[in-house]
């Protein structure tokens, strides 16, 4: 067994949320520049320029890219040969969130109960997904998830007979209905298969994949391109004020499912798509 101190987990989570909130990933910045060069709408170009300038300013001054520093989503792949010393793992992660949101001057947006709605004051608890994997390492992935885009996400249990066309229609329809609300240009995570909750988690996981990287299966690479074409043909554009830059990318994750079902989840993130990861 390899021993890992809970302090190292806390420190890593803290650092990852700091980095994610201050520094936009290179792949997203590159896509923004690529679409800026293509965009036909003058308003769209003006908006994309300001989005890029904002990300640069945030990075240089170490300010959050967006005031919605989100609810904290954490994926942990825990090697089964790891023994954690000290605190409970969940508490170690939440401690990292608490520290980052205090030290980083991030907004605390989390409330204690969906109906009673009292702010918890430290942006905890995080939403944590655990996976037990082989090995003696911990892979930590973090995402401060803004809710302008989270609110526009959707899930549907399609019928097997709906097939590929049904999936395409549901994804495009979800983006179309979201319209100007999720701060386009967006990135679209699609989870297909599994059960209802599995599809939802897959759609979130899909958002971690680098923009511009190809799906490992050609069939889904083609589907991603088809979806991106359909979405950018909607005309929604940057901030919904018209243009060809509605989405910067579509990422799909799949999982086996029951022969009676075809679950599809669509998780949308805004252009300030913040995620970082580390292996300890």
């Amino acid at each position: 067994m390899r021993e890992i101190c809970c302090e190292l987990i806390t420190e890593t989570v803290n650092k990852l949320f700091m980095e994610a909130n201050y520094h936009l990933s290179e792949d997203i910045r590159n896509k923004l520049l690529e679409y800026r060069a293509m965009e036909l709408s003058e308003t769209g170009c003006e908006i994309l320029d300001q989005i890029i300038e904002n990300a640069e300013l945030a990075s240089v001054k170490e300010l959050p890219i967006c005031q919605d520093t989100g609810m904290c989503v954490v994926f942990i792949e825990l090697g089964q040969e790891v023994s954690i010393i000290g605190d409970h793992l969940t508490e170690a992660v939440n401690k990292g969130v608490r520290q980052a949101y205090d030290e980083g001057y991030f907004r605390k947006s989390v409330i204690n109960d969906p109906l009673k709605r009292i702010n918890t004051g430290d942006n905890t608890p995080a939403v944590i997904h655990y996976d037990i994997v082989a090995g003696d390492k911990i892979h930590i992935k973090v995402m401060p998830k803004g809710f302008g885009s989270e609110n526009m996400s959707a899930i549907k249990m399609l019928k097997p007979a709906d097939g590929l066309e049904g999936v395409i229609d549901f994804v495009v329809d979800t983006v179309s209905r979201a319209g100007s609300n999720p701060c386009p240009p967006i990135i679209v995570g699609v989870g297909i298969g599994g059960t209802m909750e599995k599809a939802a988690i897959l759609s979130k996981k899909a958002l971690f994949r680098k923009l511009g990287s190809k799906h490992k299966e050609e069939f889904y690479e083609v589907l991603e391109k088809t979806l991106l074409d359909r979405i950018n043909n909607l005309g929604i554009g940057p901030q919904g004020l018209g243009g060809i830059t509605t989405a910067l990318g579509v990422n799909i994750e799949v999982f086996p499912t029951h022969f009676a079902g075809l679950p599809v989840a669509v998780n949308i993130t805004c252009h300030a798509s913040r995620h970082k990861e580390a292996i300890i």
Partner: peptide, 25 residues
Amino acid sequence: ATDCYGVSLYETEPKKYKDKYTELQ
């Protein structure tokens, strides 16, 4: 975005760019 006469860019603008992405590609 929306003036006092009820004209809204969210209605008028996206229409202009419908299907333009494929044309551009």
